[in-house]
Design a protein around this nucleic acid. Structure first.
Lengths: 214, 214, 214, 214
DNA sequence: CATGAATGAGAATTCATTCAT
DNA sequence: CATGAATGAATTCTCATTCAT
């Protein structure tokens, strides 16, 4: 898992017929774009900044992605896939409770190691997802579908208490996402001296642990 | 409570020394601004749009709020207060578990009746809160502080299971926020035909119910 | 002399039919305008600033001077007269050399006690005097005319060496003006540690003293 | 000397790494800017005007100088150097009196052939030099320093009468500047029919001639 | 592949001025 | 006398995008 999560981070697959230089540049651009878009949102981001960060001229950048939106979309597409990865390892043959708790752990870790990616997606979603096309989501949807089915079957078999599967997943996403994005802000909300004794992980385990306790 | 939440919605209290016209226009402007900012974010929003929506000339709008940022800040400030309201009704003398569950309910309702406000705050927070000044947060902080103390005392008295107070609140915020913002997107993620049997409220009650069960 | 130079400084004569309040406000406005216009030039000056400095509302200021230009013109007019005053005391019956040197002294002193006024006039003149109407200058012209005649008569009588009268006056104006306006800048040009041993007055007396020496 | 004064007039040296087009456009822009700024001052000048005069689009102009102030500064910088040129030819080995008088002549000529440049500098200086940075002045300062030393040495050696060196230079600047800037205005002040028999040059030679006469 | 040059459409402000009260 | 409210025109500057080389 960690390999796929860490490595290609932002790139999308190399396309056929591309020079090595082209592949390299695409990657560099997407990486710079991730920085910029996640920090300032779609409108706040500027192509000039991305080009500078990537060490290319604006015109050259636009040779690779001919419009701002195209670049943004490419970025989203490459992220959406990665985003779904932790879910795939949910094992039908494992212990249900253990499997789900370990999914929570994996998801939390992913969010924390990829805060920019998380922020970007959250931001896009906040705007109502105007740049996410249906097809982009299709494969993700399939995974989700199969896993909600799995959870439902566990539930039906009485191996975990009854719980609405989609809501369970959604809540996990929201809570883990939260720890990537809201972190610094939460400190400000609560004040620097707020005494938070538990780690996010401990808390989440307690929360989902008691939900899934028989 | 609901009165304060519904009514002034976006405006802040009328200030001393303000003409009637001023009060009216300030309200209209803030309302239009809420629409625009929550839909497009700070950078994506345009003063021209807000002015048009408010039925004023750009110059006239700037007569009331002399810069885009001032308008945005005024909006945030007026929202932050409202945002903290549901927390205030957490009653030290009530039944702990019942009190907390009903806070969840109130918070969820607030989020759903004020999706624009929620989106705006979330957006701001995602960017790292560059427009939120310390003082804006102070009163909110005080409420939060007193309520985390209350929860801790309940926990210490064994009236609810041990749970980290700040984390509990944070999780409630994240989850309820989620139902305002991510709703449509979640539908898209899961597919239109996804069968979600429970309502958000049912799910949240189950989740926090089991966490707080003795 | 000093009375007329010091006192009305910027005001113009009170007009018939004006309330006391009106007279007072006119004066205050002109005074504030002098500050602003002399500091930033015609274009750089803003009516809002002047109004604020005068403690009036913009609209009220425009009640007195209905356009920016009118205010500026009124200011210039009131200054031009004052500006010519030192020349009037040039005494046909005194010692020519002594009279001229003492005119230099008076002019220098005026410039230094009224730097804002000097700067304003110089600025206007630099732009080619687009706001100075012929009539404004008429009375000044008459004085100058009579005094150049006087100087010429002294020169013709051999009481001072031959020197072109208009040029003499012009040079005095330019040099004294210079000491009001260019002062700080000259320090910067020469460096803070420049050792200037003479005062402007000493230098000017030496310069004109040797020119007028028999 | 005159070559350097006439030729690059407004531009500064072409920088390394500049395209031919860039060099050309920079020159054209600076030239148009000189017209506009010298005529209306910094605030009165408009980028749109300059662009029109240069035959470029506003946006294209801003491609070369990304802000109004940058353009203005570039202009000033290129002028300041030129401005100091006549002083450099002051020859330690020549006849002191003759050298100084010929400096006056050179300076006067420069001022008259470059009235826009003179007006611009004078204007800037009148505002207190808010756009002149210390470094811009450094080289100029060095020249001035070496020349005041020279004059002082002449004075100490008794080859010219005692005169305060900085004051001497300052007076020359003020008087010559005056003939560029105040010319038309002086005509108006004195009236069209004023009989000015001497030329500026004659007058200045008389003035400084008598000051420097042994 | 890459880039310098150019641009049009808009962005936020500023500001003198007008109008009704 | 005085002012709050309103505005239109202009101004500086930004930015994604295009074009020619």
């Amino acid at each position: 898992m960690s390999a796929r999560i860490q490595e290609p981070r932002s790139g999308g697959e190399p396309r056929r017929g591309e020079t090595l230089i082209q592949q390299r540049n695409r990657k560099i651009i997407l990486c710079a774009a991730l920085d910029e878009f996640s920090a300032h949102g779609f409108h706040g981001a500027s192509i000039a900044n991305i080009a500078r960060a990537a060490g290319l001229s604006k015109a050259n950048l636009l040779y690779y992605f001919s419009r701002k939106e195209e670049l943004y979309r490419a970025l989203l597409t490459s992220l959406i896939d990665t985003w779904g990865v932790p879910l795939t390892s949910l094992d039908p043959d494992g212990d249900p409770r253990e499997e789900l708790l370990s999914y929570v752990r994996r998801k939390l870790q992913q969010t924390r190691t990829m805060p920019r990616e998380s922020r970007l997606l959250a931001n896009e979603i906040l705007q109502g997802g105007p740049h996410l096309e249906g097809e982009t989501l299709e494969s993700l949807r399939r995974i989700v579908q199969s896993k909600t089915d799995l959870i439902r079957s566990w539930s039906a078999a009485g191996r975990i208490p009854h719980v609405d599967a989609p809501h369970l997943l959604i809540s996990i996403w929201a809570l883990t996402q939260n720890y990537a994005d809201y972190d610094s802000q939460i400190r400000r909300l609560l004040g620097e001296e707020a005494d938070i004794s538990d780690t996010p992980q401990t808390f989440l385990e307690t929360l989902y642990g008691s939900l899934l306790a028989s």
